[in-house]
Amino acid sequence: MLTPDATIRFQDVEQVFMSSDGTAVQALANVNFSIARHEFVAVIGPSGCGKSTLLRIIAGLVRPTRGSVQIYGLPVTEPREEIGIVFQRPTLLPWLNILDNVTFPMRHKYGRVTAQETERARELLALTRLEEFAAKRPDELSGGMQQRVGIARALLHDPDILLMDEPFSALDALTRDEMSFELLRIWTEKPKTVLFITHSIPEALLLADRILVMSARPGAVREIIDVGLPRPRTLDTLSEKRFNELANHIRSQVFSRPVAA
C-alpha cells in the first residue's frame, strides 16, 4: 500500500482540534494511505469523518497534530505550488468577469497576469466549454457553469495535484451527472493526481480508481476499495453488475457502526 514513488503519502496521521468549549476533538486517527501519480482517488464517509481536514492537510492549510504527510517524498509544511483546489461552492469573485476569475490566482499572487496566462485561461475556458462566457459576470452563469469556472481556476497554474472538496454537492442531480462526465473528460485530456471528496457513492464509483471509505469519530480509513471498472466510463457503467455490488458494499460500510478500537 505504501509505495515509495507515491505522489501523496499519509503516515500515521492524527489530527486533534480544540473545540470552542475547550475539549479536544479527534478529527483524524491513524490515517495511512498513499496515492500514485495520476491516480483518481475518491474519499467517502459520513459527515464529520474528517474528509475536509484530510484535504486541508494535503493543501498545507492545516498542520497534522501527529504523523507525516508527504508530497513527492517531501513533508508538507506550507501550501505548495503543485496543488489546485476546487471548493464545494464555486466562490467566484462577483466583481470580475469569468476570464479574470480564472486568472485571479496569478493576479492575486503576483499582482499581474501575463499574456501567456491569459491565453492559458482561454484554453481552459474552452476545455470547460465556457469560451463564449469569458466576458460575463459570475451571477450571469448557472451553478454548474460557475463550478466549471472554479475548476478552470484551479487548473490555471497546471497543478499536478487537484484537490476537490465535494465540488458537485451544491448542484442538482442532473447537472451533477453531467459534471462528473465533464470532469472525467478533462482528467483524460489533462491527467492529474486527484483527491475527490464526496458524499455520493455513485459519483465516487463513476470517477475514481480507488475509494477511501472513512468512518467517523475519530475519522479513520475503514477500507480502501479498488474500483476496477473499465475506462472510459459512460452512462452504461452505472448499470454494470460490479457497479451495483460495490455500491451496496460501500453503503453497508458507511452505515455500519465503527469497529470498536
Binding site: R56, A59, G60, L61, E78, P79, F87, K109
Partner: peptide
C-alpha cells in the same frame, strides 16, 4: 483558503 494556498 485559496489566498493562503497561493502563499499570498
Amino acid at each position: 483558503e485559496l489566498s493562503r494556498s497561493l502563499g499570498a
